[in-house]
């Protein structure tokens, strides 16, 4: 077994609104090994992006704060580090690419300058070498005319090219962990496939662990080794990617998988999960999914379900399995 690059345990993150604390993440647990791709899935508002921002601790200009739990990265707890210590890790050992390639690059700075910024700072290279390194990185993400591109501005590039630049920037210091927050959502399907392929290739070459945040189950099936399903700021199910698609356990995961339209189906109305993700201010008592669950039991509305280990690679937070567990134990 390879070591864990990242281990998030019991992570709770809150925002302050009008002096009241609003808890968004309520105990998130998962871990990623070296060279592994972990998919983080869930609907909008389930806390996927906030989980990634919590790991990077990018709360600037917001009232967000980690209130509980730990984030072990290469054996060190990030929650106990100062901003300046975290800054040395950000961009160097842990990098991030974002959903919006069109706005994630600074419009008034040349591509080269934006790439070299991080290289010069983290790798302490002189200007000429960092320029060479930047060109190499652009070539490694499949940009042919790298020597010209470094003198161009973001608006001269297409969305796919910009996302390649973002990836080159993130991979520039060969990080141990790459967090990709919906990296292909804003791109055309053909470009999407290229970008995913590129991420896979770079992972193989550098043994980078990837935390892939997405709501696209197709991308998950294609890319990931392991999947974590989030709902209302909690992990509801964790499984190997094959197991998850073959036999989803949690009713929410079942709902998600059933909602994917299948070619050949002649349904008038597509399947969906009824209702909405509850707002953080009005979280239901007990299981947060209970109001939308089609297998809801009376206990679900009273108490939060425990996390049950179904197999060595599988965990699920649902009373359906906890009950069986109790019965077996009795």
């Amino acid at each position: 077994m390879t070591e864990h690059v990242l281990r998030v345990s019991d992570l709770e993150t809150s925002f302050m609104r009008d002096k009241t604390e609003i808890k968004i993440l309520r105990g998130v647990n998962f871990s990623i090994r070296k060279g592994e791709i972990l998919g983080l899935v869930g609907e909008s508002g389930s806390g996927k992006s906030l989980t990634s921002l919590s790991i990077m601790q990018l709360f600037h200009g917001t009232t967000g704060k980690i209130v509980k739990g730990s984030i072990y990265f290469n054996g060190e707890d990030l929650t106990k580090m100062s901003e300046s210590e975290i800054r040395k890790i950000r961009g160097k050992q842990m990098a991030m690419i974002f959903q919006e390639p069109m706005t994630s690059l600074n419009p008034v700075l040349k591509i080269g300058k934006q790439l070299m910024e991080a290289i010069e700072m983290h790798l302490k290279l002189p200007k000429s070498e960092s320029k060479h390194h930047a060109i190499q990185m652009l070539k490694s993400v499949g940009i042919g005319r790298a020597e010209e591109i470094i003198h161009e501005y973001p608006h001269q590039l297409s969305g796919g090219m910009r996302q390649r630049v973002m990836i080159a920037m993130a991979m520039a210091c060969h990080p141990n962990l790459l967090i990709a927050d919906e990296p292909t959502t804003a791109l055309d399907v053909t470009i999407q496939a290229q970008i995913l392929e590129l991420m896979k290739k770079l992972k193989e070459e550098n043994e980078t662990a990837i935390l892939l945040i997405t709501h696209d189950l197709g991308v998950v099936a294609e890319m990931c080794d392991k999947v974590v399903v989030m709902y209302a700021g909690q992990v509801v199910e964790e499984a190997d990617v094959f197991e998850l698609f073959a036999s989803p356990k949690h009713p929410y995961t079942k709902g998600l998988i059933a909602s994917v339209p299948k070619i050949g189906d002649k349904k008038e109305v597509l399947d969906s999960i009824n209702g909405h993700v509850p707002s953080p201010q009005n979280m239901p008592k007990g299981c947060k999914f209970a109001p939308r669950c089609n297998q809801v039991m009376s206990i679900c509305q009273e108490e939060s379900p425990p996390t049950v280990e179904i197999s060595a690679t599988r965990q699920c937070s649902c009373w359906l399995y906890a009950k069986k567990d109790v019965e077996v134990n009795a």
Binding site: E100, N106, E117, A118, M121, M169
Partner: peptide
Amino acid sequence: LQADFIRTGRAKGLKEHSVIVTHALRN
């Protein structure tokens, strides 16, 4: 300061003053 590229700058591990001066002020 709300812009996405400011977040990118911070995610790169840039010091706060270079985020402010190089990235935010210029824009």
